[in-house]
Structure formats: C-alpha cells, structure tokens
C-alpha cells in the first residue's frame, strides 16, 4: 500500500511517500492511521489531532470509515488552502 503525506504531515513524518504492508486485520482508514502512528514518533505527532487531517484514497476524498484494499494509494494532508 502506498502512503503519501503533504504539507506539514510530510514535515512531521519525515517522509513524502512510503510503501507499507499493514496487517490483514486493518480494514479501514481509521485502523490504518492507528497502525501508522506506531511507525515513529514523527508519525504519532502527525496524527496526534485527527481533526486537522484529511484523507484521500486513490485520489478521491474519503471519510475515516472508508474501507481499504491492498493496492490502494492513501494520502494524508491538512485541509486544503489553494486558490
């Protein structure tokens, strides 16, 4: 599974992109976040306040209960500020 981080989430995790192989019992975005938090202190810090984090799966905005599949591209980022 490919994970992407943007804006300050990239700064806190220290990576822009990583390939991960989460355990099979992780079924949705919420579960993935809890598992990613265990990867490093930076990851835990990035996901400390989930009200500040938005997520996209396969480049579409989704909610935390969105179900995941092994080949998904999952991106984490703050609320967008373009325009």
């Amino acid at each position: 599974m490919k994970i992407l981080y943007f804006a300050w989430l990239r700064g806190k995790t220290g990576v822009g992109e990583e390939d991960v192989d989460p355990p099979a019992q992780i079924a949705d975005v919420r579960g993935l976040v809890e598992w990613l938090k265990t990867r490093s202190a930076g990851h835990a810090d990035a996901f400390a306040d989930l009200s500040l984090v938005r997520v996209a799966v396969n480049q579409d905005h989704v909610q935390p209960d969105h179900a995941l599949n092994p080949g998904d591209e999952v991106a984490f980022f703050p609320p967008v500020t373009g325009g």
């Binding site: 804006a7 703050p78 609320p79 967008v80 500020t81």
Partner: peptide
C-alpha cells in the same frame, strides 16, 4: 468554481516571512 476549488482541490500554501515560515490554515 473558485469556492469548490478552495475546499476540494489538493493545494497547500506555505508562507515565508522574515521571522520564518508557516503552513496557511484553512
């Protein structure tokens, strides 16, 4: 188009000032 772009298109602004830089909050 502008209203939806500002809340849905994945862009993030980082501002540089003399005292340092910060991500713009939505």
């Amino acid at each position: 188009l502008m209203d939806w772009l500002k809340t849905k298109a994945p862009f993030w602004k980082f501002e540089e000032h003399a005292q340092g830089g910060a991500w713009v909050e939505a």
